[in-house]
């Protein structure tokens, strides 16, 4: 087998996996704290893609062209506004359902996903939109004819996803906010009795999860250059699969699950058949869960009498 082709396919899998991982972090955080699958998460990612394009065009119309400034301002604004979306959605659609059945917020989330999609379709139109090329350039290893390459923006995605995961793991494990999060996750009532404002903690988690989706949204939009109001659906399901594969509720698990899924898809479609790559991805998920019912890094569920 051609070593360059294999190397390229591994790199393709790694970048795709990092994207899945970045979005999966949002799923896993929300799941970790209130045990709810936030089906609207993919659409929050979609919102952030639109925000990226809008903010970029505003910045360019102001005449700012310095790349780091543009990138940082876009990232900051997109993450802030998307965070506000996360907060508002939690407040409106999920908080009133707290303490009712486990499935009620799930259905509410599906409704919210429809709302977000058609809201964007109505306000922005159904056509697909794009952003201009901001970061251009590739690193190529190898000769003139045979090489393995990765674009700068792909490198940025991989780095950002690892930094994002590391930072959040640090927050959860070492800071006061993290301790409050873990307390809320373990026993919401007890945490409240001990003086933790659990509602605020849950809101914070939604804001952080949404901002991570926005981080992914900005970088991925710059990478592929185009998006429409429907992109949240496919990537949302994939990211959710990645989160479960890695063990839902675990931050490193989300990252690992994303990369495993991305690699599996990339290698399978590269060397076997791209028609059946999703079949393979889901079959892999089923197999992993049969042998490790809590995912790759998830804690096994303890059955208590």
């Amino acid at each position: 087998m051609d070593i360059y082709i294999l190397g390229q396919q591994l790199l393709n899998g790694l970048t795709l996996g990092s994207i899945y991982g970045l979005i999966a972090i949002g799923y896993t955080m929300v799941y970790g704290i209130i045990g709810m699958i936030n089906f609207a998460h993919g659409d929050i990612y979609m919102i952030s893609a639109y925000l990226t394009a809008i903010i970029l065009s505003l910045i360019f119309s102001l005449g700012i062209t310095s790349l780091p400034v543009v990138l940082l301002v876009t990232l900051f604004l997109a993450m802030a506004i998307t965070g506000a979306y996360g907060w508002a959605i939690e407040r409106v659609a999920y908080r009133p359902l707290r303490g009712s059945t486990r499935l009620a917020p799930l259905i509410s989330a599906i409704g919210m996903s429809l709302v977000l999609q058609s809201y964007v379709q109505i306000s922005q139109g159904a056509r697909n939109q794009g952003v201009p090329i901001l970061i251009d350039g590739v690193v190529r290893l190898g000769g003139e004819e045979q090489f393995v390459q990765i674009t700068y923006i792909q490198i940025l995605i991989v780095i950002a996803s690892f930094i994002g995961m590391a930072a959040l793991t640090y927050i959860i494990l070492k800071t006061s906010l993290g301790r409050q999060c873990r307390a809320t996750q373990q026993d919401r009532k007890m945490a409240a009795i001990l003086g933790i404002n659990t509602n605020r903690i849950i809101s914070t988690v939604f804001v952080i999860g949404s901002s991570m989706a926005a981080l992914a949204g900005v970088l991925v939009t710059l990478n592929y250059g185009s998006f429409d109001f429907f992109i949240g659906f496919v990537i949302g399901i994939k990211a959710f699969t990645a989160a479960v594969l890695g063990g839902i509720g675990s931050l490193p698990g989300a990252m690992l699950g994303g990369i495993v899924l991305g690699m599996a898809e990339g290698l399978f479609s590269g060397f076997v058949s791209s028609d059946y790559k999703d079949v393979f991805a889901f079959a892999l998920l089923v197999l992993v869960l049969i042998f490790r019912p809590s995912g790759l890094l998830g804690k096994p569920e303890i059955e208590k009498v």
């Binding site: 082709i5 396919q9 970048t15 994207i19 290698l267």
Partner: peptide, 20 residues
């Protein structure tokens, strides 16, 4: 002769296959 999935944006592995 390959199919891709509508709604996805990442076709890099397929592209590498075209190259191969």
């Amino acid at each position: 002769y390959e199919g891709l999935t509508r709604g996805e944006k990442d076709f890099n592995s397929l592209v590498t296959k075209v190259k191969s």
